[in-house]
Structure formats: structure tokens, C-alpha cells
């Protein structure tokens, strides 16, 4: 019997809404059961820092500081990393040195069969029918050969048989919401 409990997926989010930067990482097994969850304290650059560093500040905060800190803190080693924000693909791949993909929902009609992978016009973008009872997912796999993309899709199809692939992102949001409620938004307890 396949052991879905020993395989790990890593989900990473980094947000920079209203000048407040925060990141989170959730590692789950193939049933969606959490194995590790890390989040960064919110970082709000000062006006002076924003003026001094300009556009490079956001890149530094998101890619160098938050992603690197999260990846270092993670105590499990996912076989595969998933992001919803595709701008994180390249920096995350550099940090974790593992396979990384972007995954998001689509409103397309279901493809023929589970496991079908349909290349899109945009390079590195596919529609993946991860299971039989949902719309295909939009899969971003930059810089991967077709056989590698097929390998990734098989992995995701296996995971999708026991969990909902996009669901961990909403759990991360909920968890960060709880953190916000428990703290004053700066990481300090009330």
C-alpha cells in the first residue's frame, strides 16, 4: 500500500499588503495533515527605507529575507513546493533547491481523464486534471522538460486523491488570521 503519510508537500505564501510584509509556510502530508507551520513576524518598512531602497526593498524582503528565513526554519523536507504567487517560483527554487510549482484554480471545463496535462500558450503553463470531480488546475512549471512536468503531474494527482491541493492556502490564511487576533498585528501578544 502506498504511504501517503510519509510524503510531504510544502506550501509557501508571502504577502505585502498595505506595506506590511509577512510570509508563511505550511508542510502537509498527502492527506493534508499539517507537519510544520511557520510564519514570519510582520515587517513594515519605514518611509525612509522605502525611499532609500525603492523597488529593490520589496524584492529583498520577499525573496531574501522572508523566503530564506522560512525555508531555513522548516523542520521537514517537502518533496515538492507549491506557491500560488508565481513571482515566488524562481527565488523559492533557489532557496529550497527542490522542485517548485505554481498552482491555482481555473474555471475551465474538466479535461478528458484524471492525470491529463494540457500545455497552454504561455510557456511552462499547463492545465492539470488532478482528480475526476473538479475543474482542472492551472499549473506553472517554469524551466522543466516535458518528462519532468509529467513526473510532477503524477505526484500532484497522487496527492489529489487524498487531499484537496489548493486547500492548504486557505488554511494558512485562517491561521494567520488567528495570529492577528492573538497579537496586535506586530507579533506581540496582547
Amino acid at each position: 500500500m502506498r504511504d501517503v503519510a510519509s510524503k510531504v508537500l510544502g506550501y509557501v505564501t508571502v504577502s505585502g499588503d498595505r506595506g506590511l510584509f509577512r510570509g508563511a509556510l505550511l508542510a502537509v502530508d498527502f492527506r493534508g495533515i499539517p507537519l510544520d507551520f511557520r510564519y514570519t513576524e510582520p515587517i513594515r518598512p519605514t518611509k525612509l527605507e522605502r525611499v532609500l531602497y525603492g523597488q529593490s526593498l520589496e524584492v529583498y524582503l520577499r525573496e531574501e529575507l522572508i523566503l530564506t528565513s522560512l525555508a531555513k526554519a522548516c523542520e521537514v523536507r517537502p518533496v515538492f513546493w507549491i506557491v500560488s504567487d508565481t513571482s515566488l517560483l524562481v527565488p523559492l527554487k533557489r532557496v529550497v533547491n527542490a522542485k517548485v510549482c505554481g498552482l491555482s484554480a481555473s474555471t475551465n471545463r474538466p479535461l478528458g481523464a484524471t492525470g491529463d496535462l494540457e500545455p497552454q500558450q504561455e510557456p511552462g503553463v499547463f492545465l492539470l486534471q488532478a482528480d475526476a470531480v473538479s475543474a482542472p488546475l492551472r499549473l506553472y512549471l517554469p524551466d522543466l522538460r516535458e518528462d519532468e512536468a509529467q513526473g510532477v503531474s503524477r505526484l500532484l494527482v497522487e496527492a489529489a486523491s487524498t487531499m484537496e491541493l489548493l486547500e492548504p492556502f486557505s488554511r494558512i490564511e485562517k491561521a494567520l488570521g488567528v495570529v492577528e487576533e492573538e497579537t496586535d498585528g506586530t507579533g506581540n501578544s496582547h
Binding site: G23, A24, L26, G32, P34, D36, F37, R38, Y39, T40, E41, I43, L65, I66, S69, L70, K72, A73, P110, A132, V133, S134, A135, M163, E164, E167, S170, R171, K174, A175, V178, V179, G187
Partner: peptide, 24 residues
Amino acid sequence: ASGVRNGMRIMRVLPQERVNRSSY
């Protein structure tokens, strides 16, 4: 410097959510 915190205490008690797939 970015402080990273362990949030497993929160994550352990959160439920997973399944959407209605009746249309498929």
C-alpha cells in the same frame, strides 16, 4: 531580520475544508 515563529499550535486545531463538488 525576520523572526520566524512556529505556528503548529494554531494549525493543529484548524479543520480542513472541502468544497461542494456536486456539479462534477
